[in-house]
Write a protein that binds this DNA or RNA. Structure first.
Length: 195
DNA sequence: TAGGCCATCTGGTCCT
DNA sequence: AGGACCAGATGGCCTA
């Protein structure tokens, strides 16, 4: 990497001719040459243009690296924003990238299920449908105590517990443990073939 | 020390 | 042509 630039520095006279005229006449620093030296000079001229191309390529690469870095930073910012809207875990450990995506996926699924079951129950009882349980509606804010996210408690992917059965009486926090458990560990049973 | 996670670089491909 | 996107490679840091 340094060698490229050190070449340029050491041969700065041969690079970046001031004009096309000078280019056609040969290197600026060159003195009148016999034929053999002129051939040599042509080779040097070729080498010079090659090196110029190298420099241009190098600059493009550096710019591309910079863009790629920014792109990845944007991606990480978006991932952080996603972590911000997901329920915070009691242990406050930062989710890895893959965990964040998996958890978000399952969290959306769980919310959808909550709506679906609430709709079903509303249809049974004749009550107006409950879109979101009071508990779950408050739960997503990180650090919120409205629904603490217990790592203990029973979890069942086939028959998860919901606190929306009685809108006026939020269920125990343990009812949401399946969310966390399934999000990170039992996720595959929910969405087969996602991996 | 091995394995996981991450940031960065890089070359290829596609799109505008 | 240049930028965006992607995947592979690499090296550093951290943890069990």
């Amino acid at each position: 990497m340094d060698s490229l630039y050190s070449d340029i520095d050491s041969n700065s006279c041969d690079f970046f001719p001031h004009s096309e005229d000078e280019e056609s006449r040969g290197p600026r620093c060159a003195s009148p040459q016999p034929e053999q030296q002129q051939k040599k000079q042509r080779r040097r001229g070729r080498a010079r243009s090659d090196a110029t191309v190298q420099v241009v390529k190098k600059n493009r690469r550096l710019k591309a690296n910079d863009r790629e870095r920014n792109r990845m930073h944007n991606l990480n910012d978006a991932l952080d924003a996603l972590r911000g809207v997901l329920p915070a875990f009691p242990d406050e450990t930062k989710l890895t990238k893959i965990e964040t995506l998996r958890f978000a996926h399952n969290y959306i699924w769980a919310l959808s299920e909550t709506i679906r079951i609430a709709d079903l129950q509303a249809g049974k009882t004749g009550e107006p449908p409950v879109l979101l349980s009071p508990c779950l509606a408050e739960a997503p804010s990180p650090g919120s105590d409205a629904c603490s996210w217990s790592s203990s408690g029973s979890s069942s992917s086939s028959s998860p517990a919901y606190c929306a059965s009685s809108p006026g009486s939020p269920a125990a926090p343990e009812d949401y443990s399946y969310l966390r458990q399934d999000a990170l560990y039992g996720f595959r049973s929910f969405v087969p073939g996602i991996y």
